[in-house]
Nucleic acid binder design. Sequence first.
DNA 1: ATGACTGCAAACTGTTTGCATTAGG
DNA 2: CCTAATGCAAACAGTTTGCAGTCAT
Lengths: 151, 151
Amino acid sequence: MKQAASTPTTDEALQTLRDAGLRLTQPRRQIVAALVAADGPLSPRELHQQLGSAACDPVTVYRCLTDFERLGLVHRHEFGDGSTRYQLVEADGSHLHYVICRHCQRKDPIHACPADLEATVRARGYAGVSHTLEFFGVCPDCQQGPDPEPQ
Amino acid sequence: MKQAASTPTTDEALQTLRDAGLRLTQPRRQIVAALVAADGPLSPRELHQQLGSAACDPVTVYRCLTDFERLGLVHRHEFGDGSTRYQLVEADGSHLHYVICRHCQRKDPIHACPADLEATVRARGYAGVSHTLEFFGVCPDCQQGPDPEPQ
DNA sequence: ATGACTGCAAACTGTTTGCATTAGG
DNA sequence: CCTAATGCAAACAGTTTGCAGTCAT
């Protein structure tokens, strides 16, 4: 038996690409590795910075992330701050959601997922259902201090 | 007693603005009226087009919608198509969520809301909690015909 | 070999910002 | 009046697109 929700290894993720008929190019390998190593959602820009500009072109990061999402390899987050973030889905297909502090922009993972609501959607006849969910609020710290960290 | 979930009237919405200390300017009145009349989420661009370019500057639409969201007057949607959409919240504070067809981009309202999950967030000490939730899938029509409406 | 993929450059779109002017209370 | 709010112009950021060269298979 394996553990409930573990991040896929780089090899497992690469296998997903191979199975989908995608070529295992150098940029893709590096992007996958960075996603596996990441501890939270990354924007295309952040991802590219971590790889170093020598690794590949920023455009390639966009293209790869789009493909990876289509394969269900990564989950897309819309934090409402102008850029999309991506995070590897767990081995069991689960993913996290976050609360974003309206004041300090801090992202706090929440272990709650409306996976059950997807059943409602499937009942409508939709296939390949996924979802994005983000919470927004003012974190405890920012409620306390009159001005802990505006930005 | 009043009905469960009805769209606020223009006057009710304007009162909200007044209560918040915002001035009832001409552009704001028109934007509120357009939101009340709307039957679904509108992007700033769509909203501005409905008003007619004579009504006000597009920038004003952005500023107003941002303010309105802060007041909890409108709900923000992130359909992942590059632009944010706004919709008036119901009189009882409820709102709708949507399924977006990955193929034809159709938006289908879903009467399911993870309002209960917000309790989890509040339990963490967050205040003024709100959320965005969108579902994505392939609608029945697009599953049928091999190519009903690619775009 | 050959088609998928990348890199580069440039276009685009949605959104934000600064500042002078206008108008709401 | 006096300040919030608007309009205008311009900057910005993230993302997309076209095309020629390159690399995985």
